[in-house]
Simulated scan of single mutants.
Amino acid sequence: MHITQLNVYPVKSLRGISLQQAALGVRGLAFDRHWMIVDDVGRFVTQRQMPAMARITVTLGADRLILEHPDAEPLRIELSRDDQPRLTAYVWESACQALDEGIEAKTWLAGVLGDWRGSGLRLVRFATEERRAVEPYYLQGEEAHIAFADGYPFLIATEASLAALNRTLQAKGLEALPMNRFRPNIVVAGTDAFAEDGWDSLGTADGRYRMGLRKPCQRCKITTVDQARGTIAVPGEPLQTLIEMKTQPRRPGAYFGQNATLLEGAGQTIAVGDALGA
């Protein structure tokens, strides 16, 4: 097995960045879900509510986070700042301290996205000292924490599982989908379809790093959003097809990929092409 894709999503629910290598941390790949868009009360807003968020391109420069959209000049945010006003941000049931990136970012978001049900939108950054713990139920003795990710530091998917899904979609007369519909961090080739659902861990043979696969990823409406256009061409797909495929026979719902934690290797470099073993 080997890695074919590495993807980081610095701003939750905006477009991802494809990488050749990345630094591993206990919260995931460096800068993954380090920023988030929230409404006026601090509640997170994603493509579930605003599919057009997929049209915002994200770049990590040497000292700036850069957001770009066809209808606006780029927004540049300093990477090293930590003196911004604080607010409480909410991700699902979690409440955590965040740094408000200010009026320039708020105005920029209003210009490219508008508002959400009458509420303005703000860009916030995860506070460096904040610790948002991963739910302990599925962990196996390790401790794990995250920034603004939904629940786990890493999402792992395989090329074979996507190929199996696409064969089923095409048999129904639907178009094959790219991997970016599922927004994984790590994509692996050289496996059977859905082999990842049986792995306890995944890492390099030399022990440089190892991840624990802890929970199947139940998929949501974001998988229906075209990540290039920010639109939904076929409502309900591929969710309905994943349900029909019963990729998790004992769990109702649509599942694709595995949520994972870092067991060993904080500070190590993970790269496309790395050979892995389960």
Rank of each mutant, 00 (worst) to 15 (best):
Leu162Ala: 13
Pro216Cys: 05
Asp206Ser: 07
Glu175Thr: 09
Ala195Asn: 02
Pro184Cys: 07
Arg208Val: 06
Pro216Tyr: 03
Gly207Cys: 04
Leu174Met: 14
Glu175Gln: 14
Arg183Met: 11
Arg181Phe: 11
Lys221Leu: 14
Arg183Leu: 08
Ala171Asp: 14
Arg210His: 04
Tyr152Val: 07
Arg183Pro: 12
Ile156Cys: 06
Cys217Asn: 07
Arg167Phe: 00
Gln218His: 02
Asn185His: 12
Cys217Gln: 06
Glu196Trp: 04
Ala163Leu: 12
Gly212Ser: 10
Met211His: 02
Gly198Thr: 10
Leu165Glu: 07
Gln170His: 06
Asn166Met: 07
Phe194Leu: 11
Pro216Asp: 02
Thr224Cys: 09
Leu155Lys: 05
Ala195Phe: 06
Asn185Gln: 12
Tyr152Glu: 05
Gly212Glu: 07
Val188Asp: 03
Val187Ile: 11
Arg210Asp: 08
Phe194His: 11
Ala193Asn: 04
Glu159Asp: 15
Ala189Arg: 11
Asp192Lys: 10
Arg181Asp: 11
Lys221Ile: 13
Gly190Arg: 02
Leu174Phe: 14
Thr224Ala: 12
Lys172Gln: 15
Pro184Thr: 10
Arg219Trp: 04
Cys220His: 03
Val187Phe: 03
Asp192Cys: 07
Val187Asp: 02
Leu177Ile: 12
Cys217Ser: 06
Gly203Asp: 13
Gln170Lys: 09
Gly207Asp: 07
Arg167Trp: 02
Thr224Ile: 01
Leu177Ala: 09
Val225Glu: 01
Leu155Trp: 06
Thr224Trp: 02
Glu196Ala: 05
Gly207Ile: 04
Asp200Pro: 00
Pro178Asn: 11
Gly212Phe: 05
Lys221Gly: 00
Ser161Val: 11
Leu169Pro: 09
Asn185Tyr: 13
Pro216Ser: 04
Leu165Gln: 10
Thr204Ser: 10
Arg167Glu: 15
Ala171Met: 07
Ile186Lys: 03
Phe154Ser: 08
Ala160Gly: 11
Gln218Asp: 12
Ala157Ile: 14
Ala195Thr: 10
Ala176Thr: 02
Asn185Ile: 14
Leu202Gly: 04
Ile186Val: 15
Tyr209Thr: 03
Met179Ser: 09
Ala189Ile: 05
Leu213Glu: 04
Thr158Ser: 15
Thr204His: 03
Gly173Glu: 10
Arg167Cys: 10
Ala171Arg: 15
Ser201Asp: 14
Arg181Tyr: 08
Thr223Leu: 00
Arg210Phe: 01
Lys221Tyr: 08
Gly212Arg: 11
Lys215Glu: 07
Asp200Lys: 13
Leu213Val: 12
Trp199Phe: 15
Asp226Ile: 00
Thr204Gly: 03
Ala193Phe: 06
Thr168Gly: 00
Val225Ala: 03
Ser201Tyr: 04
Leu165Val: 10
Asp226Glu: 06
Asn166Ile: 08
Ala164Phe: 06
Asn166Val: 08
Ala164Asp: 15
Ala157Ser: 15
Ala171Gln: 15
Asn180Arg: 14
Leu169Ser: 14
Asp197Cys: 01
Pro153Ala: 09
Ala164Glu: 15
Ala189His: 07
Ile222Trp: 00
Asn185Met: 11
Pro184Gly: 08
Thr204Trp: 01
Pro153Lys: 09
Glu159Pro: 00
Ala163Lys: 12
Cys220Arg: 00
Gly207Gln: 06
Leu165Pro: 03
Ala160Arg: 04
Met211Lys: 05
Cys220Ser: 07
Gln170Arg: 13
